[in-house]
């Protein structure tokens, strides 16, 4: 579905992504993990057309993303849930969701959009209760649900998520990740960038480890979960052993 080859992304003269090759097959959940500054978010932004200067090859459903604007990429079926949610705080939940379907309204898909609103409300029942409430007054977890639901309103085939569990309580983390697993069952492919590497790998099929803009490890998620390097760097094993040892 998505194929990257030798992707290099630049912020001015600084190269943030160093020759990344990566692929996402239809129906998979792919976890992209790595430390702060490894280039994970940059990669997602490049996919969405938000990084103007990049080299290499990005193919979505066999077609190049070269020269496409963000709205063209959304039209093609790829949608981003950005880090920090980026909702419109004064607008109600329902208005935020409708904005997710902006391009579809313009195509006259009003009826289909109404159906999809129902679907996302079923997926996140709390949003029905909060439908008229300004999005800025919602809790962090609820806002994240709105952000995901808003992206789903564009009917993406590939959903990109940037740190969807950041700052959330553990039970909300679980809920959000369970939702992603449900989306997979509904046929939506997911590329997930997460600091919470353990949680991400637990629901993922495969994973990539990004370090200084390069992929240093890839493989089935269960392999990465068991990998000692990954444990030390991203799963906090040593820290836990240290704490448990002292306890």
């Amino acid at each position: 579905m998505l194929r990257l080859r030798n992707l290099r992304c630049y912020y001015g003269k600084i190269r943030a992504i160093n020759g990344v090759s990566l692929s996402v097959r239809a129906g998979e959940i792919i976890a992209l993990i790595g430390a702060n500054g490894a280039g994970k978010s940059t990669l997602l932004q490049a996919l969405c057309g938000l990084i103007p200067r990049w080299e290499g090859e990005m193919l979505f459903e066999r077609e190049s993303l070269k020269g496409l604007k963000p709205q063209d990429i959304v039209k093609r079926g790829m949608c981003l849930v950005p880090e920090g949610r980026l909702l419109f705080p004064p607008m109600s939940v329902i208005e935020n969701l409708r904005l997710g379907a902006y391009l579809r309204y313009r195509r006259g898909e009003n009826e289909a959009v109404r159906e999809d609103l129902e679907t996302v409300m079923e997926l996140f029942p709390i949003l029905r209760e909060r439908a008229r409430q300004p999005a800025g007054t919602l809790s962090g977890g609820e806002q994240q649900m709105v952000a995901i639901a808003r992206a789903l309103m564009a009917r993406p085939r590939l959903l990109l998520l940037d740190e969807p569990t950041m700052g959330l309580a553990p039970f909300l983390v679980k809920m959000i990740l369970d939702t992603l697993a449900q989306l997979k069952e509904r046929g939506i492919t997911v590329l997930l960038v997460e600091q919470n590497a353990r949680a991400a790998l637990q629901i993922a099929d495969r994973g990539y480890v990004l370090e200084n803009g390069r992929i240093v490890l890839e493989g089935p998620a269960e392999d990465l979960l068991a990998d000692q390097d990954v444990k030390r760097a991203y799963l906090g094993r040593d820290y836990r052993e240290f704490c448990e040892g002292r306890a």
């Binding site: 194929r3 080859r5 020759g19 090759s21 990566l22 692929s23 097959r25 990539y208 370090e211 390069r214 992929i215 240093v216 490890l217 890839e218």
Partner: peptide, 20 residues
């Protein structure tokens, strides 16, 4: 085609890791 992509991804990560 997928095998070629898989091999390229794995080769690049192997080279990155070996060099490191």
């Amino acid at each position: 085609e997928e095998r070629t992509q898989q091999q390229l991804e794995r080769l690049q990560s192997t080279l990155n890791r070996a060099c490191k």
